[in-house]
Design a protein around this nucleic acid. Sequence first.
DNA 1: GCCAACGTTGGC
DNA 2: GCCAACGTTGGC
Length: 156
Amino acid sequence: MKYWLFKSEPDEFSIHDLKARGKKGESWDGVRNYQARNFMRDDMKKGDIALFYHSNCDETGIVGVGEISRESHPDHTAWDPKDKHFDPKTDKDNPRWFMIAMTHKETFPRTVTLAEVKADPKLSEMRIAQRGNRLSITPVTKAEFDHICKLAKKKV
DNA sequence: GCCAACGTTGGC
DNA sequence: GCCAACGTTGGC
């Protein structure tokens, strides 16, 4: 089992929205970055764990945990001319973009902020702690995952 | 709202 | 294949 971190802008889709989806979960469509796609298509398995990160908001940081509930399959929004993420260069015989689905597992009692992640030697290797990183899906180690869960439950 | 960093595009 | 220009991300 692997661990991942997914960024999402809470104005678009938050951990609370994920929880509201219940067992149906949410399709992670619209990813149009090759590195992020490769992680989903090649490395992600059902049952993998996802840290949920809120970006572009008042309190940026890790807010909870999800689980990969469906392995990668073609992202149909790439073929929909009306969709925001339409890609005219991909065709149905040779899908270019893929998505997974995730379900909600847990909302942390508090946010583990980006500032904390950057300041913690155990977490400072994480991609999100590095300057200029824009990748929306990144791998996380078990040690990092465990440490973040511990921090999330610690009173500050 | 600003702007640094990054990925992608396209001219050559 | 190089690289400048452009668009986007995302912290601050």
